[in-house]
Design a binder for these strands. Structure first.
Lengths: 124, 124
DNA sequence: CTTCTTTTCCTACACATGTAGGAAAGCAAG
DNA sequence: CTTGCTTTCCTACATGTGTAGGAAAAGAAG
């Protein structure tokens, strides 16, 4: 169900998932600074995302308004699964270890994760 | 440094990282069953990986022997970073939460992660 | 209504990736 | 040495992705 979203397309979708329905110009303005894309380029991404069924579009006066038709969670889920298989051959434990070891998590995040894991342990 | 490795190429590299130097035919045989590729296709992947500098090749009698020139860790590192940025905008905490919540980890893995996180907490 | 600006529509192009095929060369068998 | 099988070398082609440009339409401005 979740369409395959390319790297540049993720940047665009991220804007739309967090800002809600927007026009191309608004997406362009909301993209992380320093992306270096022309407005035309962003338009291409939007058009492709509509083709793929990730967005729907309504004409609102002058400009198109783009709205997500797939929830972020669905895409995170399938991207995540694909990454997990590709790089860690499905071993979630290894993946989690990699990122925990790697990153400097904040104290709050560490606490939260400890709670999450403990509750998972209890439920076993 | 770590070359960009495509999905199919990861399957090939995984074989070589775990088996050590091998010929094309051996890679072909060692690939997860049901991949559906022809030997020719695997040869193309190998050739591209050599071009990219991920593998080196030595002629050994009849057939070529392929050896990794980049360690798996390097590639996991850069693939992981790219995934982290693309999907979680760099928020490692969110990524880890996603996979912990998602997966059913074994009791042993949960223990290991708890230890890892606790030691990280202490070190703060 | 004519002109300017914004935005869409259609088109393009190079490089990556999945997926091989045919020709050619090298070694094995008879 | 001739035939055949294995493996490489070179080539191909469709689709996806990054990166737009030019033409055209649709309001905004005067």
């Amino acid at each position: 169900m979740a369409p395959r979203i390319s790297s540049a397309e993720w940047d665009v979708m991220s804007v739309i998932w967090s800002q809600g329905p927007v026009t191309a110009t608004e997406v362009f303005a909301a993209l992380p600074p320093g992306h270096g894309w022309k407005l035309k380029t962003v338009n291409t991404f939007l058009a492709r995302l509509v083709e793929k069924g990730a967005l729907k579009v309504d004409r609102k006066e002058r400009a198109f308004v783009y709205t997500a038709r797939v929830p972020r969670e669905k895409c995170v889920q399938s991207e995540g699964e694909s990454f997990l298989q590709r790089v860690f051959r499905g071993a979630t434990g290894d993946l989690v270890k990699h990122f925990c070891a790697q990153a400097d998590l904040t104290a709050a995040e560490i606490e939260e994760l400890l709670q999450l894991l403990k509750s998972k342990r209890r439920r076993k």
